[in-house]
Each structure stands twice: as C-alpha cells, then as structure tokens.
Design a protein around this nucleic acid. Structure first.
Length: 570
RNA sequence: GGCGGUGUAGCUCAGUUGGUUAGAGCAGAGGAAUCAUAAUCCUUGUGUCCGGGGUUCGAGUCCCUGCACCGCCA
C-alpha cells in the first residue's frame, strides 16, 4: 500500500466555475483519488477555495457584503456544488484560513532569511475615492496615442499601444469612476526567482515522465526571452494575508498583503492542517514534511495549463527557497482547455454550462463520464450538445445501463430475484475472464499513468464485453433446452454487474453505488483476480432489479439546452 | 503586433524515437438476435493525414514556406 497526496488547483472564490474549469483539475483529480483508494492505497485528496485578491473584493462590493462574509458564503456554495459532483475531497479548505495566514507568513520569513526576497520601490496609482491603490487594468482614460477614450492603464485596446497609467489623459477609476487619482510611491517585496533559476531548471529537466504540456510551459518561462523573472509577491490591498516575517512585523510593509498567487499554493499545505483541525485526520506532517514521515508520499497535482507556471516555478521556489524539508510535487498533470460549441466558455456572457446549471439538468455521473472521457489532455477539446447526447445515451444508457437491465430482468423472469445456482462456468466464461483480465490490466495501466481518455475507452470496452458475452451465450435460447447452463450464464452475468460497479466507481460513483446496492453487495475492493471476482455472488444470493441506471437525453432536451446555454449576444 | 497552439474519415479524437495496405468510438450501410432503456452483437472506412517546397531508401511523423482557425500577452 502506497501513500498518495493529491491536490487540485484551487478554484477562485468569485463565482461558480464552468465545466471547463471542472474537467481541468478537480474532476480528474477526483478520478485519480477514487481509483487509488479503490486499489487500497492511502490517499489524502485536498482542495480549497482561493479567496484573496482584488476580484474577490470587487465581487463582494457588488454583492453589497463585507468581503469576509462574501467569501464565507461563496465557499459554502462551492463546497455544495463540489459535493453535487461527488468530488471526494478529504478536506475542502479556504486560503483565507488562519492556518494559511500563519504558514504564508512563515514561508515569507524563511525566504527573507535566505536572502530570496528583495524590496522594490515603485509608483502606483492611488484612488482617494476608492480608498485603495488601483491595479493598472482598473484605470481608464484617453489614449495619448490615438485618442481612444477608454484606454486601460496597461494598454490601449484600440491602437494596442502599451501604456503606463501616468500616460493616460483624464484617467479615472473603473471601480468608482473617480478622477481623484494620485501617483504614489509604494514599496513591494519581490521573490528572487532568478536566484532559483538553475535549481528549478535542473529539477524540471529531471521530470522526463511529465506531460509535455507541463514541461514545455515550464521551460518556456524558464528560458524564453530574458528568462525567469523575479516576481512581486505583495499588493496594496486590505483583503489578504498581512505581510509579516513569520510572527514579526515587516518594517515598511504595514498595511500590505501578500499577492494571491503567493499564498494560494501554500494553502495546499495549510489545507492539510485544516483537515486535522476539522477532526478528520491526526497528523498532517506525515503528508507534507519529509523529515516527519512524508518521504514515501507520492504527490500529484492537477491543474489547467494556465496554472502551470505557478506550480512548476513559483510554488517550488517557495518550497525550495525555504530550505525546509517540505514535500515537493512528484507529478504535475495539466490539461488544455475545453471549448464550448465552437468558442470559449464565457462567464460574462453566460456562454456555456456552469457547474450549478449542469447539476440542475442532469445527475453528476452523466457529466463526469462525458467530461472525463473527453478530457482535453493532448490538445484543447470541444463540448457540443450533439456529442454529449450521443456519448451519454450510447455509453451509459445503452452499453452499461442496458446491460444491467437486461441481465437482471431476464433472471427475475426465469429464476426470480436470486442468483441461480445450477450449472457451472465453461469455455465461454473462461474466454470472457481472459479477455477481461487483459482489458483490466490495460485499464489499470492507463489509470496509473493518469491517461484519462484512454482509461475511459478501456472501461467502456470492459462494459462491451458484457454485452458480447450475453449475445454469444444467449441464455434466453439456452434456457429452452438446458436450464442449468442458462442458470450459470445468468449467474455469470449478475457477477459482471458487481465487477463493473467496482471498476466504474472512479468515473461514475453514483451508478456504481446503485449497482452494488441492487446486487446487495459490499464493495469487495479492487479485483486482483477476475475469476474470483466473478464468483463473488454465491448461488441463492438475493438481489433487486434496479431502476434504469441512466435515462436518455431526448432531441428536444438537447435543442432546448443548446439554446438556453448559448449565451447572450453582445 | 509579439508569442504559442492546432489543422488526420460526416463528428469527437488516437497515431510512440520517421518504416509494412493510416486507426478507435459515434454517425451511416448491410446482417444476426429478440433477454433488455426500439436497448445488443457481427460485418463494413478508395480519408489529396490543410496547401506548396525540401531532407531521406522511406514522412501524418523532421526542416522551410503559405493558408485557416484558436488561444495567450498586455
């Protein structure tokens, strides 16, 4: 039994995520966690909400709530949706927790001691009306180059000239509209990633088994142009982790907070502490401290490609730069983007399906299956309602659902709702066992390698074997001449349901649970031996014919949803 | 504008370090079966692998170039 630490990129607190976000991190992480647990490994699967930064403050202001209240409410909302999708986090934490504050300050202190932080003085626009410094993109004015009247502080969208906020004519805050702005001198902390470059480079180079997507992005940031740059890790905001050196004040940094991208990944660690605080675990250090039991932990991170630089460079800089024995990530699984019907998902335009809406129209398993079997692993991929309808109807309803239905109903009509006892398995059954064993091995191989789409394909092929068997054995024909053999065939078919439940659980946990419940079985654990697994249900064992596992999506529904989620025209 | 990605059967996608007649699922066509959610199973793919050059005994796979779409940067 091995020990696996798994984290999913933590979703930002502002709003509900769309299906592309889900399939890029949380969902495949959950698949992997469920698979490893299923195989008997010890797993700690963590996720959290990422709560700091300007967008959270603005969203709270828009909602008319104090930012802390807003975040607390949204955390509950996101936790409920995650539960709805059956994301099996051992703990769903918050980056605004006291634990993360203390840990973030601790890391900053260690980095300072190791001379990896430098102070930089820069100029930034302060808005008196808003009572805050404004990030460049929250300042608009007239472009000095082309006269466009809504040029942003960083660039003019009209002539594309790159700008400084001071260049703008009549600059104003996009938050309040106020023109009462003042350029002020302010001091910030920079993480000296340049000093870590060689160490990071060597480390990334050693990861030859990582997805190309992960290493190519990391190498690009490390080597392209001027190479890896030092990164500002503080901001002039109210909402965030106050800048401190461990427990001590940081002279000159009063009133500032750490940048959200500095404290967010540290939450992976703090989340394990929160897990213990919540009474769900006893010892977080054996997962995170290599001097305290974590040396044999395999740590896997899941994320969309936009998060790769922070996980391959920034966070490792924090970990390595601390000089302390923290667990470093072993494998980073990254995903491309999922597009929606020929374009991008768009929060602002309401284009595409968001997590709450998805659960309103169909149960989690439907989405889990489609998303995972079409995960954007090697390139961006595409969600279309047509494809969704076809895949779900065919794979889930016809291939798996109908298999369960036909064998249980046939048994009920001929033998009653108990496993029939006559007859014995013969050549046909042995051949199926051999085929399943081979497929299972391939399935395990793809799951171990986190090849999500290929694993899904293999699982589907395993389901198909059941239908092939029934077609070939044809117990409905056998029954007419040889009742005992038909009984054995039915017994074999019923046992396949139990096997399928266990193997399918990582993808479609609810249906798997329904299958086990119908067969009145406990999850016997991962099948080490297919032949044994297919003798698990003894003769005379009672079962129930379950309701249909999956319903089909009608053409009318498909059309309705297509229209409903197309988004407002702009 | 700069950077990056993609372009393989009607659709969604596989194609390892260049090597035999380019693959899977779905859709389509034909057949079998009738236990089942009109559900299953079998058979069936003559595709200028975006175009044009080039390297090579040999390129979907490498190089150059053109086109198209997409994303990122701000």
């Amino acid at each position: 039994m091995a020990r696996h630490l798994i984290t999913s990129a933590i979703p930002y607190i502002n709003g509900i995520k769309h299906l592309g976000n889900l399939v890029g991190s949380q969902l495949p992480a959950d698949l992997y966690a469920r698979y490893l647990r299923g195989r008997g490994h010890e797993v700690l699967f963590l996720c959290a909400t990422d709560e700091h930064g300007t967008p959270a403050e603005l969203a709270a202001a828009k909602a008319g709530k104090p930012v802390a209240d807003y975040c607390a409410e949204m955390h509950v909302v996101q936790a409920k949706i995650a539960e709805g999708f059956r994301l099996s986090f051992d703990h769903f934490g918050r980056s605004s927790s006291d634990r993360n504050k203390a840990l973030t300050q601790h890391f900053a202190g260690r980095l300072a001691e190791n001379d990896l932080i430098r102070e930089v003085s820069e100029k930034q626009m302060y808005s008196h009306a808003d009572g805050r410094y404004l990030p460049d993109r929250y300042i608009e004015g007239t472009c000095p180059n082309c006269g466009f009247d809504s040029a942003r502080g960083d660039q003019c969208d009209n002539c594309t000239k790159q700008l400084d906020p001071v260049d703008l004519i009549n600059p104003h805050s996009t938050i309040s509209g106020s023109t009462d702005l003042e350029m002020r001198e302010t001091k910030h902390l920079y993480l000296r990633q340049t000093a870590m470059k060689d160490q990071l480079d060597t480390w990334i180079d050693s990861k030859t088994d990582w997805p190309v997507l992960t290493t190519s992005i990391a190498k690009k940031w490390l080597r392209d142009g001027d190479g890896l740059q030092d990164r500002g890790i503080t901001r002039d905001l109210d909402w965030g982790v106050p800048v401190k050196k461990g427990d001590a004040d940081w002279p000159g940094m009063e009133g500032k907070v750490f940048y959200v991208w500095f404290d967010a990944p540290i939450e992976y660690i703090a989340c394990a502490q929160e897990w213990v605080d919540a009474g769900k675990g006893a010892d977080w250090e054996r997962w995170w401290r290599t001097d305290k039991g974590a040396e044999d932990v395999t740590y896997t991170q899941f994320m969309g490609k936009d998060n790769v630089p922070f996980h391959t460079l920034s966070f490792p800089s924090t970990i390595l730069g601390s000089g302390e024995p923290w667990k470093l990530v072993d494998y980073i699984k990254s995903f491309n983007y999922l597009n929606y019907d020929g374009g991008q998902f768009s929060t602002s335009r309401g284009r595409g399906v968001f997590m709450d809406q998805a659960l309103e129209i169909l149960p989690a398993d439907y989405w889990r299956w489609w998303l995972l079997s079409h995960a954007p692993e090697s390139s961006d991929s595409e969600f279309t309602w047509d494809n969704f309808q076809q895949s779900v109807n065919k794979d889930l309803a016809d291939v798996l659902g109908n298999f369960v239905s036909r064998i249980t109903k046939f048994c009920r009509s001929k033998f009653g709702e108990v496993v029939p006892e006559a007859g014995a398995y013969g050549d046909k059954e042995q051949a199926v066992i051999a085929a399943l064993t081979e497929r299972l091995r391939a399935y395990e191989g793809f799951m171990d390698a986190i090849e999500v789409r290929k694993a899904a394909g293999e699982l589907r092929a395993i389901w198909v074997i059941g239908n092939e068997y029934l077609q070939d054995a044809a117990p409905w024909s056998t029954f007419k001449t040889d009742e005992a053999t038909a009984a054995a065939q039915v017994r074999f078919g019923l046992n396949l349901i139990g096997l399928y439940a266990v193997l399918s659980a990582p993808f479609i946990p609810d249906a798997a649970a329904t299958m086990l419940a119908a067969m009145k079985m406990d999850n016997a654990g991962w099948p080490e031996d297919i032949a044994a697994a297919l003798n698990a249900l003894p003769a005379g064992h009672a079962f129930e014919v379950p309701e249909n596992l999956f319903r089909k999506i009608s053409d009318e529904e498909r059309e309705e949803w297509q229209t409903r989620f197309a988004g407002v025209r702009t």
